[in-house]
Amino acid sequence: MKTLRLTIDGVTVTAREGMSVLEAALEAGIYIPHLCHHPDLKPVGVCRLCLVEIAGRGMTISCKTPVEEGMVVKTESPDIELARRVAVELLIVNHHADCLSCAKDGACKLQEIARYVGIEEERLQRLRRTTRSLPVDSSNPFFLRDPNRCVLCGICVRTCEEIVGASAIDYAFRGYATVISTLGNRPIVQSRCESCGECVARCPVGALVPRQERNPAREVRSVCAYCGVGCGLYLGVRGNQVVRVRGAAESPVNRGRLCVKGRYGHGYIGHPERLTTPLIKRDGRFVEASWDEALDLVAARLAGYRGDQFAALTSARCTNEENYLLQKFTRAVMGTHNIDHCARL
């Protein structure tokens, strides 16, 4: 790919053809405030915060402007300062004021931008603060939707359309009444939402947050145990407990994405009812046994059968290797083709 050179705030920056000015700046370590840009999504240019001045063109947004050879870009000017500061102030006075009780506190892009711009309390005092309070949608078992914290960046809408392909949500209504909504503005659980949580993972603020999630102390790279696809993920753990799962962006299998089970279905890992040893039925009751005992018992009983007397059913939760082994065992050892898999049912 062709590389280009441009100047941002007097610094010469190299970029690849097709990149936006915003991407080039971010890659070069130059921060430009932005809310609606997300590296996984097509740019739409709606938050209007990523303003820059380009020599010969004047003020424009950087996320939709492709880099060009020799471009001279400024990220600060009085015009930028005014338009951006007012926009950020407006976002703040139209946003729920209690960051301390917000799950996103500390990781919120609006907080980050507010700190960058440097919010002055006296200026905020002049503005009319919203008195509106919209109901929180808590219908989904895995995440909450709080429209009072939404900045309408549209990242969730685009994620659902471009990445998930479900298109469960979109903008609805007009003007100040605009919200992100399901079809007919029903609770999200009644929509075609698959609860995959991809939008939740990308929401820059506290408008989409997981319901039960504690901050992990550390993360462990692993592979999802649910199915044979093998999505790469990070288990966020506290002590010996898994408290969060996130997709591993570097995994070629899922490129950071997960489905509802992989992302939210981790409760079984530490569940008190989870089986941790084999059980053998003795006198009509299951009793705990060792692996050796259990395997010996199975082997001894299987020896009494041959050919079509036997059938094996395997599971999508097993790895490819495990599935391969079972079909080999069924055909070569038991002498039958009676092998099937739950994914076909």
């Binding site: 709606v46 209007r48 309408l152 007009r174 003007g175 100040y176």
Partner: peptide, 10 residues
């Protein structure tokens, strides 16, 4: 206002 961009909507 279509509600999509910050300066206009707010």
């Amino acid at each position: 206002s279509c509600g999509e961009c910050v300066p206009c909507r707010l």
